[in-house]
Design a protein around this nucleic acid. Sequence first.
RNA 1: AGGGGCGUAGCUCAGUGGUAGAGCAGCGGCCUUUUAAGCCGAAGGUCGUGGGUUCGAUCCCCACCGCCCCUACCA
Length: 559
Amino acid sequence: MPFDPLDQYLERRKKLDQIQALGFDPYPHRFPATHTVAEILDGFGTRAAEELETESVGVRVAGRVLALRLHGKAGFAHLGGQGRRLQIYVKLDSVGERAYQLFRLLDLGDIVGVTGHLFRTRTGELTVRVEELELLAKALLPLPEKWHGLADVDLRYRRRYLDLIAGERESGQPTREIFVRRTRVLRALRRFFDGRGYLEVETPMMHPILGGAAARPFITHHNAFDTDLYLRIAPELYLKRLVVGGFDRVYEVNRNFRNEGIDSTHQPEFTMLEFYQAYSDYRELMDLTETLFREVVTECCEASGVHYGGVYIDFGRPFDRFTMREAVLKFWPAADAGAAPSAEDLGTRDALDSFLRGAGEAAGARHDAVPPSDLEGRQRLRVLAATFGEIREELTRGIIGPGQALAGLFEAVAEPHLVQPTFIYDFPAEISPLAKCRADDPSTAERFELFVAGMELANGFSELNDPEDQERRFRAQVERGGADAPKEVDWDYLRALCHGLPPTAGEGIGIDRLVMLVTDSHAIREVILFPLLRPEARHPPAGPEPGEPASGKPKADPS
RNA sequence: AGGGGCGUAGCUCAGUGGUAGAGCAGCGGCCUUUUAAGCCGAAGGUCGUGGGUUCGAUCCCCACCGCCCCUACCA
């Protein structure tokens, strides 16, 4: 059973035996404490030394040994609990011979309970003068290194329990605080929706038909039905079925699964909040979204904005709003790529094609004019020219239409600039198969996305509720094909629409990214307790079975 | 997928074409108000894996594995 580091494991196992020999149970059943570590620190942290002496405050408290400083016939330790640390002072004269021997056999990481009285040390630290010491659980493996903590990023995620005990990130925020704040975000979101009459519901995660987003799925198998199922890529189509069923306001917070790459803003398993409300449209949702973000940030950060990577992001001000076209024009890099596209340029395939050729040539010429010493500038222009080229090529080959080309331009030129909260609305209908189109322009969908810090945080639209239109769009998707397109039409969803979906607006919010924002985290893995990692090579533990004496080196190799 | 970087003691890292060092942790000793406690001592290594060059490789070369960063992909 022993795990690496083997020598330390065996050493601690040996101490465990010695502790038992002293008559202590190394894994007792309970420890009725009078205070938690945090309660003692909060309740008495400001009390003066003389006060503590006269009041003679007795406490019984448990925690993990995070630091040990032994001095012969006395010693100090720090007990960790609730993310805090409390000092204890163990003196031979106070605890007696047997308990003092136990104290000398403690290791960093052990869980202990103490009974004693509060005092202040010479240096002023609030401390428990221990009268009784009990071992509550022996730690057979060591804590992370005390200076650097868990520096190995991979190990921080794999052994999150250690990261939570010790973890200070580079930004200095303890890992524990990130996840405490994450639960606050979820609580604030639930309060927001519960207070407005939304029902929290749970819809299937195993879907017979893929839908609700464009993404490659995970596939699993149900034995009794002998059928393959998809892990859901979005709950959208089920939630809208509920609106058909008369749940006018619903929301769901849970995981979606997308079988795609992993990077600083993507995880295969991520948490999304989706909500739908009948008798609304996307404009109303933009207003609601603005309120929601403002409230959640205020509630979780005690401020109307957040510092993200050194930039202050202000949720207190009205959010910027641009149509996708406006955003492309506003952020168009005219110095690098020539004049911005006109309405005519974006109108038809041919016009777009010749515009892109011009822009690509402009960027290319500009690239050649930049001195070779400006590596960054050359790189940027190279990428820009290549992007124009790729969009143009896909356009000519018919893989994408003008709408998707516009979206491509948006991503390339505008998205990185959207640092302050900004709504981008009026998306190409082409890339919005579940959204209702504008009455005055069938090529434009009533859809918006909220961008913050260059990240897409929310995506909402007026839901398409015309079943015949929806059927045409489903069929077009299936015909167009592609790795992330649905393989078949979801007829049951269309049947539901035929029963009448009220005019409805719906939205999805990426919870992980929102938590990144409010915790100043710059990788999505930082805000997911156990992010997906490449599976570790199997290392079956080796050595004596539990119960066998742990003395001496086990003959089996630990690998 | 392309480009770059890394892999040495349990951890964080030095280092050299002649088979290795520090700090911390662990172990032994001293120490009854310390807090990165201190002092003394001993121990700890197939230098990622496999090939090659060489009298000799941890170092040079090749391949592989793993990890990190950038770019690309992914609404």
